[in-house]
Structures are given as structure tokens and as C-alpha cells.
Write a protein that binds this DNA or RNA. Structure first.
Lengths: 204, 204
DNA sequence: CGTTATACTGTATAAATATATAGTATAATT
DNA sequence: AATTATACTATATATTTATACAGTATAACG
């Protein structure tokens, strides 16, 4: 997917908003009205550029024949993707990792959140986090000691309690006697915090 | 919402399928093609009937101005009460027991459910049920061994694993070593099953 | 310096589309 | 027996819409 220009982004956003609002895509004239253009050809050229770059598809000849490609990344309001514990490198929300989407009211857990993570393993069992549970993950770097974080150490993604023991030493603590602490020295090992848990859902 | 006729259902399905497939709603002519009608007015009259009955909305004058009124997303009937572990006698869902209500899509946990129960204590800790968790309770008497049930024994309400050991003997088993089994002899003691757990939510 | 991509206005028009009007026919309801 | 809702065909037409063509202007690229 090539780079998008600021104006093209505005047009793309406009299409998304229009679809969310009305349920069907805009015409060239609609886009002009929304963005203040005075000629339908302004919209037309932007649409053709977006199509060429792969952001949208246009059904030729059909009225309102615009559809947005990769809608799972710009997820609809209230639709949250469920992702598995994925290996590093691949972006967490890439469509190939999305198991399905779950309809959930915004602010369901008091705090905003970005996606659900499907839990593997029992390392957080004593915190009441069981296999196959869905953790509501908020992508943030604002972590306090004791928070349950989704951390990536080199190639592995895990869910653990966060504790900073020294400026450069972080302990990732499981909630299960059978597992042991992970000590991370930030000078030696790369640690990336994907976000923290703000809630949990169990389906059974 | 009034009754839908079989033909109207076919038209409604056709619209949904068309939107899923193309990303935008069909025209009258598209519907005719899909369903084998030979006049656009056939589609038109069905659309007007569906609009009158509330299943769809039609933006007048706009091409492809059809949108499906999806009651499951737009409905505000998805309000479920949260109740505490209330003593017997008082009806569980009486307003004085309702802490607050939580907006939650219907069928969120695969199965239907009736209310949320705020958990007190740690007797089901090893099942991943912690203090202050919300259990989605389905009011039912269809209980299998191993289900997590909300049971009332005389004056006490508890959440436990259900196990029928003999026709008249039921064991209510905690998931915590520090608690012990409750054996109920149905000939001696009154046991009422409020329902069973079909899901869990944790807010933090 | 010429070329190319972006970002527009303005006009024109063929094709797509909604929608009204005029019928036919059947089944259910009053 | 008359009315109403459903379920269509057939035709007509005003409006909507996509989209081509002709320009203007600016910034980036090699």
C-alpha cells in the first residue's frame, strides 16, 4: 500500500464517515459537499488516486460504487477485533491475525480499549485469567507497577504483571507458582509494551 | 416490528447479501436481477413494504439509498441489570437489588442470559472467578454436572460447581482449596438453582 | 528545464436510477 | 361482496450520478 497524501486521507475519512452515517457510500457530489469542493472532478481525481493506491475499490459505472479496502483496521464503532498471541514483527492488528470481531459498547470497561487478546496458557491463572479468555487491551505506554501488561520480549508476546525494580530492570511476574519471574535488563534486552489489560471477558 | 412475508424476507436477505458482497446497497434493478423479477416496480413495492414495517430505511431520491435497520445494534433493549448476592426471599431482580445496568449486545456470550451477578469472595478463584467479577447468569433449570451454578440454600446464595452424586444428593464444589464442598441432601434441605453462568466480565 | 503527481474549477453528457402510473392476479379479511 | 395486502408485468420519465474533456496552478523530481 503506497503512501497516502493528506488530502486523500481526508477524502478516505469522508467516505468512511459517510458510510457509517448513512449506510451507503457517497457520490462525487456528496464528497464535494462534505469537503467544500466546487467540482465533482475534484472528488473523481482523488477517488482514482485512492483506487490506484489500493485504499478503495470503485465499481465502474455503478452509482455509489465505492468500497473501502481493509475495513478491519479502521474498525467500525463498537466493533473490536479479537487477535491471538502473535509473534513479534507482524503488526498486532494486521487482518491475518484477526480471529473475528466482537460487538461491544464503547467504554464497556470504564476505560477505552483497542482490541481483544485471546489468552493462551495459564501463566496468569491466579489473577483469574484462564486459557481462551479475552483480555481487553488498551494500547498505551502509561504503565504502573502492578498493571497487567501485554509485553513483547524479542520474539515472544506474553501477558504478565509489570514491576519496575530499578530504572533499567523490569520484572514480568506470572500469577502461577509453576511459572517463574522474567527479569528484563533494558540495556541487554529489547522490551516492548503493547499495552495493558483494562478488562476481561470469558465466553462459555 | 410487524410480521414479514416470505417474499419480503427474500428481498431483505438479498439486500443484506448484496451489501456484504459489494459494500453498497442494491438498486431496484439489482434486486430484480437477483430475484428474477422483470419489473423494477416489483422491487419498489417490496422495499416500500419493508420500509413501512420498519425493517429498512430508504433515503428518498438518493440512488442506492437503502439501509437495513439492524435492531441488534441500534436497539437500546440490551440493558442487563447487575445484582449482588442477595438473600433469599427478596426477588433477585427487584429494583432495590440492582446496582446499575450494563449495556451489552444480545448473545454476547453465545447463549442468551438474564442478568449479571456481582461476585463476592474467592470461593471460585481457581475457576478464574475473582471478587467483583460479573457473572452472566442465565435463569434455567437445565443444569449438567460441572456447570457453574448460582444456588440458594435456605438463606444463602453462592456460586459453585454443580455435581449430582445421587438422585437426592447434590455437591456444590468450590474452586478453592481453602473452601470445602457443600453436600446437599434434597430430602432434608431446600436447594434452589437460580441459574447458571454462561460468561464473565471483569472491569478494571 | 521538462516531466509528473497533486489539487483544484467549470462544463457537458450518456448512463444509471428512483419512482410514478397503469394494469393483472390471488389470497385473506371484513 | 367489497376491501385490503401481497405479488407481480410493463412503460415512462425526471433526477441522479459517473465520468470525460478542457483548463489553471503548484510542488517535487531527475
Amino acid at each position: 500500500m503506497k503512501d497516502i497524501t493528506p488530502q486523500q486521507q481526508k477524502v478516505l475519512d469522508c467516505i468512511q464517515v459517510y458510510i457509517n452515517k448513512t449506510g451507503f457510500p457517497p457520490t462525487r457530489a456528496d464528497i464535494c459537499r462534505e469537503l467544500g469542493f466546487k467540482s465533482p472532478n475534484s472528488a473523481e481525481t482523488h477517488l482514482r488516486a485512492l483506487e490506484k493506491k489500493g485504499f478503495i475499490s470503485i465499481e465502474s459505472g455503478a452509482s455509489r460504487g465505492i468500497s473501502i479496502n481493509n475495513p478491519e483496521i479502521t474498525h467500525l464503532e463498537n466493533e473490536y477485533p479479537i487477535v491471538g498471541l502473535v509473534a513479534a514483527g507482524s503488526p498486532t492488528l494486521a487482518s491475518e491475525n484477526v480471529e473475528k470481531v466482537l460487538n461491544c459498547p464503547k467504554g464497556f470497561f470504564g476505560s477505552d480499549f483497542d482490541y481483544f487478546l485471546r489468552v493462551r496458557g495459564l501463566s496468569m491463572k491466579d489473577a483469574g485469567i484462564m486459557e481462551d479468555d479475552l483480555i481487553a487491551v488498551k494500547k498505551t505506554q502509561e504503565i504502573k507497577n502492578g498493571d497487567i501488561v501485554i509485553a513483547r520480549i524479542e520474539d515472544e508476546v506474553t501477558v504478565k504483571y509489570f514491576q519496575r525494580s530499578a530504572p533499567n530492570i523490569i520484572h514480568l511476574k506470572p500469577a502461577n507458582e509453576e511459572f517463574s519471574d522474567i527479569e528484563v535488563n533494558l540495556e541487554e534486552t529489547e522490551l516492548y509494551i503493547e499495552g495493558k489489560s483494562v478488562g476481561l471477558i470469558r465466553e462459555n
